[in-house]
Structures are given as C-alpha cells and as structure tokens.
C-alpha cells in the first residue's frame, strides 16, 4: 500500500548466491562470531566449511555459500570484515572463476538389478566405492553441489539409506592467491 504521492523506490531485487572465502585467525570462538553474525542479522547460510589452512600461523579458511539481494550480500561482506579476527573476506563469485567442490559419502542398500544399476551409475559419476559388502555400498563422490544432488536423487529409488556431505570448499582459478 503506497499512500505517498511518490512512486515506490522499492525494486524487487533478485536473490543471488555467492561463495565467500573468509580468512580468519583461528582463535577460540571465531566460528561462533561468524555464525552468530549470520543468525543475529538474519542472513542465510546455505553451506559452511571450516578448516585450519595454515597451521603455523593459526589461520583458518571459512567458505560460506549465502544468498541475498546484492545489497544484503554487500552488507554480509562488510559485516564479516568488521569482525576483529577476520583477516579478509573475498567474494569468489564476483571473479566468476570460482572452483567449488563438495565431497559426499552415500550409503546404498540393495540386491539384484537395483544393486547393479547403482554400481553402473556410480561408475558414470566417477564415484569411488569406499565400503562394500553383499548388502550395501558406501560411495565417495566429489564434485559440484548439483552433481551430488543429481547422484543422490538417482540413488533414492535404488536403495539410498543415508548420505553425508561436507559443504563447499572453494578456490579461485589461475596462479594467484586471493
């Protein structure tokens, strides 16, 4: 309801998905700060991956996949950058040269034709078998998120029991560090 005689300045902005790399000092509570920022300000986290990447320097890399309007994405980056233990924030999506991978472990149970079909698809997706017995397999699959989604959906009718995935690890292409 616009009761003013001015046209509405609200343009419905498209939601975008961005992959952010956040380099942080690996001090106690740093992940809580990052996650608390997202929950406290109502931002989305689609995927979150954390690991220490420079052990000597106690530096960790947090990879966050988030969605929001361009204004919200800019806010998220600025808010993250404002946290004291954050070294820097890089939006890998902006460079458009982002490499993003996930790893998934997928347990499939079945006999007969379904079992053979599952094996055939796993081969086509270049999934590795990391556990096998006469009743079930555990596949290890690496790839982009949509590839994993696709594989998991194919496994559903073939006896998917459960699966676990790591969330996104991402890096930029080319010789340069971010």
């Amino acid at each position: 309801m616009n009761t003013s005689h001015y046209p509405s300045a609200y343009v419905v902005e498209q939601q975008e998905t961005h992959t952010l790399s956040v380099i942080v000092d690996n001090e106690p509570g740093v992940l809580a700060r990052v996650v608390g920022l997202f929950s406290g300000r109502g931002y989305n986290i689609e995927s979150l991956t954390v690991s220490e990447t420079e052990h000597e320097a106690h530096v960790s890399r947090i990879t966050i996949v988030t969605t929001g309007t361009p204004m919200v994405i800019e806010q998220i980056k600025n808010q993250l950058d404002r946290l004291v233990p954050v070294h820097r924030v890089v939006d890998l999506t902006v460079s458009a040269k982002v490499l993003a991978r996930e790893l998934a472990l997928i347990k499939v149970k079945g006999k007969g034709e379904a079992r053979v079909e599952a094996l055939r698809l796993a081969d086509a997706f270049r999934a590795r078998i990391v556990d096998a017995n006469t009743e079930s397999f555990v596949f290890e699959l690496t790839g982009r998120g949509d590839k994993i989604d696709e594989f998991v959906n194919l496994m559903r009718p073939l006896g998917l029991v459960e699966y676990s995935r790591t969330g996104v690890a991402a890096i930029s292409r080319g010789p340069d560090a971010m």
Binding site: M71, E74, Q75, N78, Q79, D81, R82
Partner: peptide, 8 residues
C-alpha cells in the same frame, strides 16, 4: 569509518 554502515 565503518564500511558496514554504508549502503546498509
């Protein structure tokens, strides 16, 4: 001084 105040 706070970049997060800009365009918020």
């Amino acid at each position: 001084i706070d970049p997060s105040s800009i365009n918020k």
